[in-house]
């Protein structure tokens, strides 16, 4: 049993987004984090100091570990932001600004 079956889900049609130029399928209602997780991706940021990978941690918008660049806008919280058709999602390096 997967969670979609468990909840008797009949999702609206999936759409395509990209993550670092890789195409992913996403369902309407998903957050960016859900779309990445569903594709087996667990990190989408590197830290400013040590360049370590990070992904989701608190899952509810409190910790800011899940920051990601969406459509050229850095510092979006992947656990809160809804994913939209055609979104261009990129790993955020450091502050997300070329500095």
């Amino acid at each position: 049993m997967n969670p979609l079956e468990l909840a008797g889900a009949r999702p609206e049609p999936a759409f395509t987004v990209t993550f670092d130029d890789r195409e992913l399928q996403a369902l309407p209602g998903w957050t960016v984090a859900a779309a990445l997780w569903a594709a087996g991706i667990t990190s989408w940021r590197t830290t400013r100091r040590d360049g370590r990978p990070r992904g989701i941690f608190c899952g509810i918008g409190v910790c800011f570990d899940c920051l990601v660049t969406v459509n050229d806008r850095p510092n979006q919280r992947a656990c809160l932001v809804a994913v939209r058709p055609g979104d261009v999602i990129r790993t955020q390096e450091g502050t997300g600004h070329a500095d």
């Binding site: 979609l4 468990l6 909840a7 008797g8 889900a9 009949r10 609206e12 209602g29 998903w30």
Partner: peptide, 9 residues
């Protein structure tokens, strides 16, 4: 669950 997922249960 988000509305778009159409969860009936």
């Amino acid at each position: 669950p988000a509305t778009g997922l159409g969860a009936r249960r």
